[in-house]
């Protein structure tokens, strides 16, 4: 039981950083960015390919696993951020101000294109991270630590540390910096933000770049967790992350973090109690339950707005 909760917590950390991307975009554009999961998948592919390539060229033997992982994450971040930026420029920006169904359908279209594009070019079978490489075994492949009934894998710790660091970093960025405050202002009133001199298009681009970069990190971690990257991995994780965002209160940054962790734990409890066959369904049931009981989510709408 405790073991399951721990696993759920680690998984939840990953959901949380993906959920941040959904929530930030929704906060500003009121758009569910369906392509977000695909951006994660692209990050995962880039990351796993980098890792595998490092293993193949012997770089991993020379410098060890962790520097290669860092490189994979940086590479994935850059590629995904570029994709996020390009998607917004090419599809969402022309649809700004159109009736709300149009951007949504456009987003589905983008998601379909990316998924099938990767499937066609990289193949329908997964690509594998070099988890049997001696350098990996020497660093993260070491045996688990047992603390009481819970067995903690080194990879779990890496995932948690990265997730916590990213969330703290994002929090500081949004709360303390000029661009972060401009992002919050834009999400509250886009026209007014323009009237005080904020370049709204730039803020939106920054939002997409940051959200996509976070998704890329999550994608690499997820690929390590599952030892592989597959073209449809973005679909399921995207769905779950969106549930997490709704659970926490969509548009709300701390809500997304909380929602992600809660969802991971809830899923673990579900597996413990009801079995693993319905793993994919729990998040959907949770989503429905949230919508029935508290549609604005746990942290949604904290301040009453005066008109």
């Amino acid at each position: 039981m405790l073991q399951n909760l721990w696993n759920g917590l680690v998984q939840g950390g990953i959901y949380a950083i993906v959920a941040l991307g959904y929530t930030m975009v929704y906060g500003i554009l009121l758009l569910i960015n369906f392509a977000h999961g695909e951006v994660l998948m692209i990050g995962a592919y880039t990351g796993v390919a980098t890792l595998a390539g490092c293993a193949g060229t012997g770089a991993m033997e020379a410098v060890g696993f962790m520097p290669c992982l860092a490189m994979a994450i940086i590479g994935a971040t850059c590629v995904s951020a570029a994709y996020g930026f390009a998607i917004e420029r090419a599809v969402y920006r022309p649809l700004r101000g159109a009736p709300s169904l149009s951007p949504l359908i456009g987003a589905i279209g983008v998601s379909m294109v990316l998924q099938n594009y990767v499937m066609r070019t990289q193949g329908a079978s997964p690509i594998y991270a070099p988890m049997s490489h001696p350098a990996y075994v020497a660093s993260l492949g070491a045996s688990n630590w047992d603390i009481g009934p819970v067995s903690i894998a080194p990879l779990d710790l890496v995932v948690l540390v990265v997730c916590v660091a990213l969330m703290a970093g994002l929090w500081m960025f949004v709360q303390r910096t000029r661009t972060g405050t401009a992002m919050r202002a834009t999400s509250q009133d886009r026209v007014m933000a323009g009237l005080v001199g904020i370049d709204v298009n730039r803020v939106i681009s920054v939002t997409f770049v940051i959200g996509s970069a976070l998704a890329a990190v999550a994608g690499v971690l997820l690929a390590l967790f599952n030892t592989q990257a597959k073209y449809d991995m973005g679909f399921t994780s995207g769905m779950k992350a969106f549930t997490a965002a709704v659970l926490g209160g969509i548009g709300n940054v701390p809500g997304a973090m909380l929602g992600g962790v809660l969802l991971g734990v809830a899923e673990a409890v579900g597996i413990q109690l009801l079995g693993a066959e319905y793993k994919e369904v729990y998040s959907f049931v949770i989503l429905l339950a949230v919508l029935i009981v508290r549609p604005k989510g746990i942290l949604g709408e904290r301040v009453a707005e005066k008109v």
Partner: peptide
């Protein structure tokens, strides 16, 4: 900006 503090609102004015 309802969910920004008064000080942050003013800071946005001087963006």
């Amino acid at each position: 900006f309802a969910r920004l503090s008064v000080r942050e609102n003013l800071a946005m004015g001087a963006f």
